[in-house]
């Protein structure tokens, strides 16, 4: 075919258990395609993806992989299936044939983690965007998944909703030891992860700790990505001869460094 587009191009990557990885990249960089490869929604044209020793090409493992790798999508309205919160969280559990009694326990457990217990009987269309995304997260983790892939979960939310979602994601990573793969184009959110991967035209363009990646201002701008304000300020001041680490990512660190000079 002439119009073939390579969405992903020879990616080699290992994600360790318990990690919190963020994937950044502009539209069309292959982020969502990458996400859909994680749980057999897409299969690679060439190459292999292994989830806990299971190859995503192995048809007999598809359901096991999907159970292990939970997914949350961008539009909160288009991933909630049932007419109440509890029924929606139970949806995945019903699919894998969990017994009713155990299901009730799991639903309550998941609701508690995402802090939505009081909305158990609510109708989804009456919730805020942040709450809807928390329900979606609960639906994924109720399956006791060990990996959670979030594809721009906050792109359609307001600042309050964003904070709610990122707080829950961090909690899942720290307290429940769930491996997080977080796709975003918001640098403040990516800064919360342990490792950032910048994609460009389906290839890995940059990878490293947030403070390593976000200080590559020139490359980030080439990739048409944002640079956190604080990092840009730190770099500029550094160039002007003020001894501030160009790896400064957080407002608090900047304040502390500046206190020595002002």
């Amino acid at each position: 075919m002439k119009d073939q587009i390579k969405a992903l191009d020879s990616i080699n990557l290992e994600i360790k258990k318990g990690d919190f990885i963020s994937i950044i990249g502009s539209n069309g960089s292959g982020k969502s395609t990458f996400a859909k490869h994680m749980n057999c929604l897409l299969l690679p044209t060439t190459g292999d993806i292994w989830v806990d020793e299971m190859n995503t090409r192995d048809k007999s493992k598809t359901w096991e992989i999907r159970r292990k790798v939970g997914m949350v999508f961008q539009n909160p309205d288009n991933q909630i299936i049932a007419t109440t919160v509890e029924d929606d969280i139970a949806f995945g559990l019903e699919n894998i044939g969990i017994k009713t009694k155990l299901m009730r326990e799991r639903v309550d457990w998941a609701l508690e983690i995402v802090e939505m217990e009081e909305y158990k009987k609510s109708e989804p269309h009456l919730l805020s965007g942040g709450q809807k995304q928390r329900v979606a997260i609960a639906g994924a983790i109720a399956l006791h998944s060990s990996y959670l892939v979030l594809d721009e979960p906050t792109a359609m939310l307001d600042p309050r909703g964003r904070k709610e979602v990122i707080a829950i994601v961090k909690k899942l990573n720290l307290e429940k030891n769930i491996t997080i793969i977080y796709i975003t184009h918001l640098m403040e959110e990516a800064a919360e992860s342990n490792r950032v991967i910048a994609l460009d035209k389906g290839k890995i363009a940059l990878t490293g700790k947030p403070e390593e990646v976000f200080t590559q201002i020139e490359i980030l701008k080439q990739l048409r990505l944002d640079v956190p304000q604080i990092t840009e300020l730190a770099l500029r001041l550094n160039k002007r001869g003020i001894d501030i680490s160009p790896h400064t990512l957080k407002v608090e660190d900047m304040v502390e460094s500046l206190c020595l000079y002002i």
Partner: peptide
């Protein structure tokens, strides 16, 4: 578009029709 996204979300949550499904209610 909604239907398309919903179908993917359902598949990601292991949906494969009524076979072997249990009931929350």
């Amino acid at each position: 578009r909604r239907a398309d996204e919903l179908a993917i979300a359902m598949e990601a949550k292991c949906y494969r029709g009524g076979e072997g499904r249990t009931h929350y209610r």
